[in-house]
Design a protein around this nucleic acid. Structure first.
Lengths: 157, 157
DNA sequence: TGATAATGTTACCAAGTATAACTATTTTGG
DNA sequence: CCAAAATAGTTATACTTGGTAACATTATCA
C-alpha cells in the first residue's frame, strides 16, 4: 500500500509537527536558514542606501584594498567579471566609488572609494555590525565566537 | 590626504593579504561563504537528477507530510505561492510527485510523491548526506554537532 | 613580429523571488 | 439564504542575481 493510498484512506492530510527530518542533520540546510535569517535585516538596512549586500561587501573590499582591479573584486566576492562591471557601475553612479586609470597596465582600472563612499561606509560599518549582533542575539558571546570559528573552518581553503 | 592620493603616490595597488576586516567578525558573511561552499557540490549532484536544491527540499517535505497542500510547502520553504506552482509543476513533469484532488476543499490539492519519487528520494538522501559530510569534513564530529546546534539557535523562532 | 593571454565590456540567457490580477471555491455575516 | 470577503491555486510580469559567449583593447612571450 502506497503512502498516497494510506493517506487517502486515513484522511491523513498534513501532520502539523514534522518528524525528525534529514534536514535537521544537514549543515547545508541549517546554513541556508540561518543566512536567510540574517540577510533579511541586512538587505533592509542597505536598501535605505540603495545598496545590495554584495555592493556593501565590495565597498569594504575596496576600502581595505584601495586601487585594486575589478578582477580582484571578482575573486574576493566569488563572482564573474561581468557582475563586477555592473557592481562598480552602480557604485560609481551612486558616487561612492570610482575607476581611475592609474596603472601601468592600461586595460585595467584602480578602483577607489570616493570621499562620500568612505563616509557612507563608516556609517554602514556600525549599522551592519549592530544588525549582525542583533541577528545572533540568542547566542552568548562565546557561542558567537565559536560559531564564527566553525564557519570559517568549513569554508576556508 | 585621501586614500586615493596616498595609494597613487605609493603605487600601492592591491595589498595581497587582507588586513583584519569587519567581514571576519560578521556571522552573516561567514554564513554566506559557508553556504556557498556546501551548496556548490549539492547543486552539482542534484543537477544529475535535473533537480534544484529547493526541489529536493520540497521532495523531503512532501515525503514527510504526504498529502500536504501547496501552501504548506510554501510556508516551510519560505517561498511565495507562485514559486510553489512552478516547483510542483517541475516535480510532476519529472514524474516524481503529483497533485491529487483528495480534499473536502476542492480548491486545493494533496501533494504526494510518486513511487519513482520515493525511490529517487531514497537514493538522494544517501548522496546528499554524504555530500554534506564531505563539505564539513574539516570539522570533528563534535564540532559538526555543535555547529548544527548553534545554527539552529540562530534561525529558530 | 605574431600568437596567445588577460582586462574589461556588451549582449544574452537561466533561475530565484516578488507582486498584481485572475479563477474557482469556501467561509462569513447580515 | 445570499452577497461579500477570504482562500488556494494560477498566470503574467518584472526585477535581481548568477552565468556564458563574444568582443575590443592592451600585455606578454616565443
Amino acid at each position: 500500500m502506497s503512502k498516497l493510498e494510506r493517506n487517502l484512506e486515513a484522511g491523513n492530510t498534513h501532520s502539523g509537527a514534522r518528524s525528525d527530518s534529514i534536514l535537521d542533520d544537514l549543515v547545508g540546510y541549517a546554513l541556508k536558514r540561518a543566512h536567510v535569517h540574517l540577510n533579511k535585516s541586512l538587505a533592509s538596512k542597505l536598501a535605505e542606501y540603495d545598496l545590495r549586500p554584495s555592493q556593501f561587501t565590495a565597498m569594504l573590499i575596496i576600502d581595505e584594498n584601495p586601487g585594486l582591479m575589478q578582477a580582484d573584486i571578482g575573486v574576493q566576492l566569488l563572482i564573474e567579471p561581468p557582475q563586477v562591471v555592473t557592481l562598480v557601475n552602480r557604485l560609481e553612479k551612486l558616487g561612492l566609488a570610482m575607476r581611475v586609470r592609474c596603472k601601468p597596465d592600461k586595460r585595467s582600472y584602480g578602483i577607489f572609494l570616493s570621499k562620500q563612499g568612505e563616509q557612507t561606509l563608516r556609517q554602514l560599518r556600525l549599522e551592519v555590525r549592530a544588525l549582525d549582533a542583533a541577528g545572533t542575539a540568542r547566542l552568548s558571546e562565546s557561542e558567537r565566537t565559536e560559531l564564527l570559528r566553525l564557519l570559517k573552518k568549513v569554508y576556508r581553503d
